[in-house]
Simulated assay, not measured.
Amino acid sequence: MKIYIHEPKEEKDIRLTIPNGVIFNKLGAMIAGKVIEENTQENTITKEQLKILMKEIKRYVKQFGHFDLVHIETSDGEIIKITL
């Protein structure tokens, strides 16, 4: 996963690179499930469903390559981009 944030008023851009294997695994699914559970009133997705989702994201990236999950450009020139 690559996270890129550009703000015209700042001198440097923010660039973070995190291996997909670190995020999209069973431990990541359990952590995400706990965070969702604590921060939402409704239990919209189960931990098992998150495990399946993360497995499918890994399979998709392996088969088709990287893709932009989020790409936002504002009229002020700010750019936020998350690539898997």
Rank of each mutant, 00 (worst) to 15 (best):
N43T: 13
M54K: 03
I36A: 13
L27A: 12
G77W: 03
F67D: 11
H6K: 07
K26N: 13
E10G: 01
P19M: 03
G65E: 04
I45Q: 05
L84P: 08
K47S: 12
T83V: 07
R59P: 01
M30L: 08
K62V: 03
M54T: 08
K26W: 04
T74Y: 02
T74A: 04
G65V: 06
K2W: 10
F64Q: 15
I14T: 15
I57Q: 04
D68Y: 13
V70R: 03
Q49Y: 04
D76E: 06
I82E: 09
D76W: 02
E56L: 09
D13S: 02
I52K: 10
E78R: 09
I5F: 11
E73Y: 03
Q49H: 00
K34E: 14
I82R: 06
E7K: 06
D13E: 02
I18N: 01
Q63A: 15
M30P: 05
K62S: 15
K9R: 05
E73F: 05
G77S: 00
H6C: 03
M30D: 10
A29E: 01
L50S: 01
T46N: 05
V35H: 07
H66S: 15
I82D: 07
L53G: 13
V35D: 08
K2I: 00
F64N: 13
H71T: 04
T46L: 02
I5Y: 14
R15V: 15
H6Q: 06
Q41Y: 12
D13P: 03
M1Y: 14
V61K: 14
A29I: 03
S75I: 00
L69S: 14
V61G: 14
E38C: 02
N20G: 14
E10D: 03
I45S: 05
E7F: 07
Y4W: 05
T40F: 06
E10Q: 07
I80C: 15
Q63R: 15
K47F: 04
I3Q: 02
G33F: 01
E38T: 12
A32I: 07
Y4E: 01
I79T: 00
I3D: 02
E10M: 05
N43I: 10
S75K: 08
I79A: 10
N25P: 01
N20C: 09
E11H: 09
G33M: 04
G28I: 04
E7Q: 08
E42Q: 11
L53N: 13
E48Y: 06
K9V: 03
I52A: 11
N20T: 15
I72W: 01
E42W: 08
K9G: 02
Q41I: 06
E56A: 09
Q41L: 09
I18K: 05
I31A: 09
H71C: 06
N39Q: 05
F67M: 12
R15F: 10
K58F: 02
M30N: 12
I14R: 08
T44P: 07
E7A: 06
Y60L: 11
L69Q: 15
